[in-house]
Simulated assay, not measured.
Amino acid sequence: MIQIRKFEGQDTGPILDLFYETVHTVNARDYTKEQLDAWAPLEDMSAKRLVWERSLASHITYVADIGGTIAGFGDMTNEGYIDRLYVHHRYQRQGIATALLNTLEAEAIRLGAAKLFTEASITAKPFFERYGYSVLKEQTVIRSGVSLINYRMVKSIGK
């Protein structure tokens, strides 16, 4: 059974592992190995633990917990920017991303946000479109000197 709960500091290590594994498996169908390595470099993961922990703690962050295992996580700013939404490759297509997105959207509505924004990967774009997000523009971002395409997306919420 999926439990959606607030992020806790000890979740950071499992989240970093989940992020790396998800990017390098799920996103591999849409990005090259060079792009995946720039997006989620293995050698940076442990070094960035404190940066990630601070970021996740400063955002509105939820994790999907299945029997003590973090199967996914999502976070957003108070302004309604969904920064990250990832589900471990072993837990894809089980409603976890939907549960996390619904939780973030409900929180944004509670906070009075009028819109939600995200920068979705090629892989995630169809998921966000299914939930009412529209593409504002395709954009190229640079990670460690490597270009990656993603999509600036928006959804109106609330009143």
Rank of each mutant, 00 (worst) to 15 (best):
G112C: 09
R110S: 14
F128M: 08
L56V: 03
N27L: 05
Y91L: 03
Q3C: 12
L56A: 05
D37N: 15
E34H: 00
P14E: 13
G13T: 02
L111Q: 13
V51N: 10
E129W: 09
I15C: 14
F7K: 02
I142K: 15
D83T: 05
I122P: 07
A106G: 13
E119I: 08
K6H: 10
T69S: 14
S121I: 06
A124H: 01
E138N: 13
G112W: 07
A47L: 12
T98Q: 13
T69K: 15
S55Y: 09
M153K: 09
D75H: 11
I142R: 15
L16Y: 06
S134T: 08
P126S: 13
N78A: 11
I2N: 10
E79Y: 09
R110I: 12
E107T: 08
E105P: 04
T103F: 06
P14H: 12
G68A: 09
S121W: 05
A38R: 00
M45T: 01
Y91E: 05
L50H: 10
D65V: 05
T140Q: 04
G112A: 07
R5L: 04
L116G: 03
S58R: 15
I109M: 11
F127W: 00
E107F: 02
P126C: 13
A47N: 08
S156H: 12
L100Q: 00
Y86N: 03
L18R: 00
R143G: 04
R93V: 07
A113Q: 15
